[in-house]
Amino acid sequence: MSALRKWATPLTVATFLAMGVTGILMFFHVDSALNKVLHEWAGWLMLLGVLAHLVLNWRPFSAYLKRPMARGIMGAGVLVLALSFWPVSGGGSPVQQVMQAMAQSDVATVIALSGQELETGLEVLAAAGLEADHTTTMAELTGGARGVQMQVIDLLFAQ
C-alpha cells in the first residue's frame, strides 16, 4: 500500500489541476486543440488516481456514506450525471448541429462552404489520399469517424 500511497494522491492532484484548467478554458471557448486532448487523457489518469486514492482511504470514505449531507451531495452528483444522458431534442450545441449537418452533406457542399472550387477541393482531398467525387458524402469519405471528419474539414478550410 505504501507504493500506492506515493503516487495516488499526487496523481489525483495533478490531474485535477489539468482537468480544472482545461475545463474552464473549454467552457469559455478559449482552449486550443491540445487543451481538449489533455482534458480527455487527463480524465483517464484522474480516474486511475481517484480509484487508487479511494482504495487507500476506503474507511474514511465509507464514513461519509453515513452522513446525510454527504450522501445528499453524492446522490445529487449521481442524479446530475444520469440526467446528462437524457436526450434533448432541438437543443444542443450549435457547433454540434453544424458538424452533424456537415457529416450528412456531400463533399461538394463542404468544399463550397470552404470557399474553394469543386475541382480544387477534390484535388486537395486526392493529394491527402482521399478519393471522392461530388456525390460522395462526408460519412462515406470518413467512414463516419468524427476525428477523420474534423481532419477533412481542417484540410479543406486550411486552403
Rank of each mutant, 00 (worst) to 15 (best):
A112S: 15
M74R: 02
I73Y: 00
I111H: 10
A128F: 08
H29T: 12
T109L: 09
L118Y: 04
L54R: 01
A158H: 03
S32H: 05
S2T: 15
Q96E: 15
W86G: 08
G91F: 12
M1V: 11
E140F: 02
F85A: 03
L4T: 07
A76N: 03
T137H: 02
L51F: 02
T120P: 10
D31T: 11
V80N: 01
M150Y: 10
H134W: 12
M19L: 15
L38D: 02
M19R: 10
L56H: 06
V98D: 05
F61L: 08
H29G: 04
G115V: 11
E140R: 01
Q159K: 04
A82F: 06
G121I: 08
Q97H: 10
A139Q: 15
E123H: 14
T135Q: 12
S62G: 08
L54D: 01
A52F: 04
G144E: 01
S32K: 04
I111M: 10
F27V: 13
Q100L: 14
G49R: 06
R59L: 09
P10Q: 09
A42C: 06
M19C: 11
A63M: 12
Q116E: 14
G20M: 14
L156F: 07
P94I: 15
D31C: 05
M102C: 08
Q151P: 04
E131L: 14
F27T: 10
S114G: 04
L118V: 11
V110I: 15
H134C: 09
H39D: 05
A108R: 14
D31M: 08
S114M: 06
L11E: 01
A103L: 10
A127N: 13
A70N: 03
S62A: 12
T120Q: 13
A108H: 13
V78E: 04
L17I: 15
G143K: 00
I24M: 11
T135S: 13
T142M: 04
L130P: 14
L51P: 00
S84F: 02
A112W: 13
H29E: 08
M1E: 09
G49D: 06
L54N: 00
R59M: 04
R146Y: 08
S84N: 00
Q96L: 14
R5P: 05
G49V: 13
A108N: 12
Q151V: 06
L4G: 02
A139Y: 11
R71L: 07
D133T: 08
L113A: 15
W86S: 11
Q159W: 08
L122R: 02
L38V: 09
K6G: 11
V98R: 09
D106E: 12
G20L: 14
G43E: 02
T137R: 01
T109Y: 13
T9G: 10
G75P: 00
I24W: 14
L11D: 01
G115F: 13
L125E: 04
R67D: 02
T120R: 15
L51D: 00
F27E: 08
S62P: 04
L56Q: 01
V148N: 05
T120I: 14
E119A: 15
T15D: 00
T12G: 05
F28P: 06
T120D: 10
V98S: 05
L113E: 13
P68E: 01
M150G: 10
A18N: 09
A101T: 06
V30R: 10
V152I: 07
D133K: 01
V148F: 03
L4S: 06
E119I: 15
V88W: 12
L48G: 09
L17G: 13
A18K: 07
V13R: 03
G90W: 08
